[in-house]
Design a protein around this nucleic acid. Sequence first.
DNA 1: GAATTTCCTTGACGCAGATCAACAACCCAC
DNA 2: GTGGGTTGTTGATCTGCGTCAAGGAAATTC
Lengths: 250, 250
Amino acid sequence: MPQSRTASTHAHVKCGDCPIRHRAICARCEADELEVLNSIKYYRTFAPGETIVWAGEQFSFVASVVSGVATLTQTLEDGRRQVVGLLLPSDFIGRPGRHRSQFDVTAVSEVTLCCFRRDPFDEMLQRTPHIGERLLEMTLDELDAAREWMLILGRKNAREKIASLLVMIAHRDAALHMTRPSGEVSFELPLTREAMADYLGLTLETVSRQISAQRRDGVIELEGKRRVRVPDFAALVAETGDDSDGGWID
Amino acid sequence: MPQSRTASTHAHVKCGDCPIRHRAICARCEADELEVLNSIKYYRTFAPGETIVWAGEQFSFVASVVSGVATLTQTLEDGRRQVVGLLLPSDFIGRPGRHRSQFDVTAVSEVTLCCFRRDPFDEMLQRTPHIGERLLEMTLDELDAAREWMLILGRKNAREKIASLLVMIAHRDAALHMTRPSGEVSFELPLTREAMADYLGLTLETVSRQISAQRRDGVIELEGKRRVRVPDFAALVAETGDDSDGGWID
DNA sequence: GAATTTCCTTGACGCAGATCAACAACCCAC
DNA sequence: GTGGGTTGTTGATCTGCGTCAAGGAAATTC
């Protein structure tokens, strides 16, 4: 896995009531644009399992995830499903010039979005080239993440896949508190066994078995079904088959 | 697979001696910028198997592929390898703000690049926002392609994977002549069996067996080892397991 | 608090694809 | 020509994970 990524050099806008920072909007534009942002935004909440956008659907807004977890999925005609992206708080939905979604966007937990109406947002983009640059940067991060996931899907065995997923979630979780995971780590698993399976190209039974195996081997501990405690993060990373812990970014 | 993608609405620059169109550079800027482009470009050729950029290496240029085929690859510490992207003629290497490659870029056949020196290219980008928009658009195309490939890697069986690869190559091949594949189609396979395996998350033996099987079943015909004739393209598409032939773009 | 539903775990078994191995076809060097 | 390297094909065998099946734990509904 790539060791170091281009670190983002500037902070991101925190607007109005959102507890997250809007990564799409660079801080250099903050003073001028926050007012515009606040005037065109509204919140929407989706229940677990609810579809946020269907594949092929035109979407009338762009949005940041404020809380909750959503997935991007593709489905084969016979129902086989693949999660191709996770949307966690501060992730962005919708792109300029992409008026239709390529994938189903589905809420996994209860999801709150901070939506911006499309047309005014696009206008703001025209006037504010920094935001376009920031969007390109975020898109490149997503592209890197997708390509890392291709390695996981194509070449790792079930045990390595589970470890890789846990490491990724731990990284994303730590990033929210501006830290990096190390030593003892503990986090919430935001996905069902089935969603994990769909992300990793496995069946839910295999996911369950591998989690049990890692638990037996002392690599992880479970508190309930969803809370994971990792006594030694380096040991979990060693299970991934990578030569480093990857550079999962904010 | 996504059915229709955002079609690019404008043509792309054909500069100097390059037989390809530079997709990164939008035609609206052509008049002003062609001169700059031609003043900062040079050609480089790489032999089959030669590494163009190592993962983690700083690169001093951005480039378009003029001829030949290159791969983006990732390798696990024990040598398992995954191709995470194909670079075909007119594809672009390097991104603003991404000064290091995340992946190994390797020539598969003899590859000629049209390189632009990095600093003047970045300056031109500053002055010409259209190019930035075009780069974002291309990056989004790559992201969509990567996510489609995640479905192939995670959820398709060997036979469907082979069919999907052949369909993709046929689409890319046809796009060079501004057509879409249909009816009888014939094209060159630019990859070895091993490279195909590394792209599809299979072994080379399985690739060979599945190609033989499709040949036995009359879905494809081989002329030599590398030239493929598809008597009925729709029949090949039906082998992919998708509900449509996907929208592989230019 | 009983019934239903959702989510998870574990076992038994089979198969698609990996692995190991032999060989064929073709290239280039000399 | 001959020899050696690269690439591709095919067969035999093994195995990791999918499939099918049963049941447990916890939340939700009535």
